[in-house]
């Protein structure tokens, strides 16, 4: 059976949930194999335990000086080296993120292979499903040339643990070319962590818009009661009320949680583009004519400063 390569997303060895989703998808297409780039030595041990748990039969460990010091190009080179080592893999899967899509784009050019981005499902073939034009259409597609390179949106599969797998570790030494060392990262400023789940991975997202008038506390309290992440519309971000990395929409994050709560958000097409594939959508808005109500499973016409605190209290009461 051909291998299906999964690029591992990790923070110092802590494997992101999206990677476990991809390993689960990989098992539908062939033999799951993980590609681990970067990190400290003990980071690798941590990561490989998780990768084994989700069925990686092989873990390629890429070792190369300076991969992390340059933007995108070295990772694409490293991945191409692993593809060569793996023989003829059935596909390469990456989680959809700005950086990964760029890695995928460069890899596709290197391999002269077709590329599909932002799949919401991948089945045998591989046949992908994409949700396009702000989720107005569902499209299936496949790659017709080369090794299919596919980026998959978070929350596209439920990760399935597999017992008793001990992956073969293959070390891949990579020498990064001079050409890939041209965009140097000269400074990296970590962002403050909110303590809440990662926006794109969260099962629940509670977002606030211009209607919050700058006060996100009822939005945050409701998110915390539900164990969710906090999102924002561009209007709220542009006003400086919430950080840009919380923006949901076309030019922000694309989220697909089990529950999305829009409060004080009108529902502009660019906002919808980032949340319309959410499984259940709830909105609170003063204006009964707000377009967001066209999407909702449940809506409350009302003031978010009254509705959200009551809902928060109600959730906490039920939790006891």
């Amino acid at each position: 059976m051909s291998q299906v390569l999964v690029l591992v997303d990790h923070v110092d060895g802590a494997v992101r949930k999206t990677t476990t989703e991809l390993l689960t998808i990989a098992a539908r297409l062939g033999e799951p194999a993980a590609v681990f780039i970067g990190g400290h030595p003990d980071a690798f041990d941590n990561a490989s335990a998780t990768l084994a748990e989700y069925g990686a039969q092989t873990v390629y460990r890429v070792e190369g000086e300076g991969i992390e010091d340059y933007l995108v190009a070295p990772k694409a080179e490293a991945l191409a080296a692993v593809v060569a080592q793996a023989g003829d893999p059935a596909a390469v899967l990456l989680a959809s993120s700005g950086e990964n899509k760029e890695i995928a784009g460069r890899l596709a050019v290197k391999l002269d292979s077709g590329l599909i981005t932002d799949a919401v499902d991948v089945q045998e073939g591989p046949v992908t499903t994409q949700s396009v034009f702000a989720a107005a259409f569902t499209v299936t597609a496949s790659v017709t040339k080369g090794v299919p390179v596919i980026t998959v949106k978070p929350n596209s599969a439920e990760p399935i643990a597999v017992a008793g797998v001990t992956p073969t570790v293959v070390t891949v030494p990579v020498t990064i070319s001079e050409a890939a060392r041209t965009a140097k990262i000269t400074e990296r400023r970590p962002k403050e962590k909110s303590g809440r789940p990662e926006l794109t991975e969260a099962a629940v997202v509670v977002s606030g818009g211009r209607g919050t008038n700058g006060d996100f506390s009822p939005v945050e309290s409701f998110a915390d009661a539900l164990g969710g992440a906090v999102g924002a519309s561009r209007a709220a971000v542009d006003a400086g009320w919430y950080p840009h990395n919380s923006q949901v929409g076309q030019t922000g994050k694309q989220v697909s949680p089990t529950l999305y709560v829009a409060s004080g958000i009108s529902g502009a097409i660019q906002h919808r583009a980032g949340m319309q594939t959410s499984k259940t959508i709830v909105a609170i808005n003063k204006d009964p004519e707000a377009p967001i109500f066209e999407l909702v499973d449940f809506g409350v016409v009302g003031d978010l400063f009254k509705v959200l605190p009551q809902a928060t209290e109600e959730v906490l009461k039920r939790k006891g």
């Binding site: 933007l71 700005g98 965009a183 400023r189």
Partner: peptide, 9 residues
């Protein structure tokens, strides 16, 4: 980026 801001040249 999600976790950091980078300066790149």
């Amino acid at each position: 980026n999600d976790a950091s801001t980078e300066i790149i040249e």
